[in-house]
Write a protein that binds this DNA or RNA. Sequence first.
DNA 1: AACTCGGGGCA
DNA 2: TGCCCAGAGTT
Length: 216
Amino acid sequence: MLTKKQTLEAIDEMAYLFPDAECELVHSNPFELLIAVVLSAQCTDALVNKVTPGLFAKYKSPTDYLMVPQEELEQDIRRIGLFRSKAKNIQKLCRSLIDDFQGEVPKERDELVKLAGVGRKTANVVTSVAFGVPAIAVDTHVERVSKRLGICRWKDNVREVEETLMKKIPEERWSDTHHQLIFFGRYHCKAQSPQCPECPLLSMCREGKKRMKGKL
DNA sequence: AACTCGGGGCA
DNA sequence: TGCCCAGAGTT
């Protein structure tokens, strides 16, 4: 297991590799971000960014999403995987925004997770990116990188990964760390083909050293 | 804890 | 063209 100090060194190294790491979902307000993050479940941000310009031009408010039949919304996001359940969830989500939150996106993580289609990861992204509340959203990239490097344990569940990261990283760096881990995971420490031979973190990486030994 | 939902992108 | 990608809800 990496110590706090080693963990921070690893994050600093990632920041050097990806100095511009930030949320890639195109949005211009919290509501658009919420919709974009819900859509991004189980598909890439790049794909979401292909449908959201048209989507956000057509739907400006929670009310707008409720004025069309579910089938029409499904067609509007049909290029995204799981589009049927996502269309249904988005309409449920908008209904609940109107009924319970005066049409505004709630700022509390505990309120956000009650919305349809919003889980722990989505709620953390919205609070940190839209409202600047420190949070570490654990998606598959964050989880994979944390486990490979040895920041957390292999058998940790998502919640345990998040708790370990929050323990090892000072709060003011949570949001940045989240983006660093995602970029590092997406573009360098990839699921199928991690770039170990050219990785500056190799010397401190549990999994990387194993992989290199297997190849040499 | 395991299963389901699903089209896009790349090898 | 088949395999890999990537979370939330349900059982």
